[in-house]
Design a protein around this nucleic acid. Structure first.
Length: 244
DNA sequence: ACATTATCCTGCACGC
DNA sequence: TGCGTGCAGGATAATG
C-alpha cells in the first residue's frame, strides 16, 4: 500500500494504516450513502469517501497507475486498487468493525431502498425547520444527496429551496419524495451507461441538469431566469417563478 | 443547542 | 500569451 497524500487518510498516520491494511484480504464491498466500505479479514474495515472528484478502481497492473492516484494498493496478483482524486477531498479511514457501527448509525435512510417510504420522508421533513435544500443535503437524515441532486430534486418538485419543509402539505412532500427517487435513479442510470462503454478513456455520461449551474439562463419549464443564491456556503440554483 | 462560516485542495474558467 | 483571481465540491472544525 502506498499513500501519496497523508491528509486524505484518517485517523491513523500513514505508516500505521499501511501496517493495519497490508496482508489482509478484501472480503466484502458495500455502500452506504456516499460511503464505500471494504470489509477486510481480521475484522478490519476500510471506509472510502470519494468526495467530489474521487474514483476507486482496479487496474491490470499496479505500475500503470494514473497521475492523480493518491493512494494505491498492490494486490497479490499484481493488479492495482487505485484511489485517484485530483482535488484530494476524498478520505480513507481504517476502523475495526465494531467502531464502524457507530459511524454508520449516524447515516440517514437510503433513498433508493424500500426504507425510504413516503411516511418516513414526511416524518423527517416535519421534524426539521431548516431550509429544504440544507435539509436534503444532511446525510444524517437522507444518505446520498449532494448539492447537485438536491437542487435538481427541488426543481422537479417545484419547491423553493429556501423554505422549510416542516409545514408543507403531504401532497407536495409526495412530489418531492418522488423527485428524489427519480433524480437518483437517473443519475445511477447515467453512471452505469458511462461504465458500460468499452474503453478506459471514455467520457463519463453527464447527468442532464435542468437547473444546476444554469444561472441567468431561462427556466426549462417557465422561461424565467434561473437564480443563484448561497446556502450553507454552497451555491443553490432555482427558478424563483415556478419553485414555491 | 442552534446556525453560519472557514478549512482543506486542485483544476479550470475567466478577465485584464 | 500569461498571469492572477475566484469558484467548485463534502465533511468537519470552528466560530457566532
Amino acid at each position: 500500500m502506498r499513500i501519496e497524500r497523508a491528509n486524505m487518510v484518517k485517523p491513523h498516520p500513514p505508516p500505521v494504516l499501511c501496517q493495519l491494511v497490508e496482508g489482509r484480504q478484501v472480503e466484502s464491498v458495500e455502500r452506504r450513502g456516499k460511503n464505500i466500505l471494504l470489509g477486510l479479514s481480521g475484522m478490519g474495515l476500510l471506509h472510502v469517501h470519494l468526495g467530489m472528484t474521487g474514483n476507486l478502481f482496479v487496474i491490470p497492473d499496479v505500475r500503470f497507475r494514473c497521475l492523480s492516484a493518491r493512494i494505491w494498493f498492490e494486490l497479490d496478483d499484481g493488479k492495482g486498487l487505485i484511489f485517484e482524486d485530483p482535488r484530494t477531498l476524498g478520505r480513507l479511514r481504517f476502523y475495526h468493525r465494531q467502531e464502524a457501527s457507530g459511524l454508520l448509525a449516524e447515516l440517514g435512510v437510503e433513498p433508493l431502498s424500500d426504507q425510504f417510504t413516503l411516511s418516513r420522508f414526511v416524518e423527517l421533513a416535519r421534524s426539521s425547520r431548516q431550509p429544504a435544500k440544507i435539509f436534503l443535503m444532511d446525510q444524517r437524515r437522507i444518505a446520498g444527496l449532494g448539492n447537485i441532486y438536491a437542487a435538481e430534486a427541488l426543481f422537479r418538485a417545484r419547491m423553493d429551496p429556501r423554505k422549510s419543509l416542516s409545514r408543507v402539505s403531504r401532497k407536495k412532500l409526495a412530489a418531492l419524495h418522488q423527485a428524489i427517487v427519480e433524480v437518483l435513479n437517473q443519475a445511477v442510470e447515467c453512471a452505469v451507461k458511462a461504465y458500460a462503454k468499452p474503453g478506459v478513456f471514455q467520457e463519463a455520461e453527464e447527468f442532464p441538469c435542468q437547473v444546476y449551474a444554469r444561472e441567468g439562463k431561462p427556466c426549462l419549464r417557465c422561461g424565467h431566469s434561473i437564480r443563484r443564491i448561497h446556502q450553507g456556503g454552497r451555491s443553490t440554483y432555482f427558478c424563483p417563478a415556478c419553485q414555491r
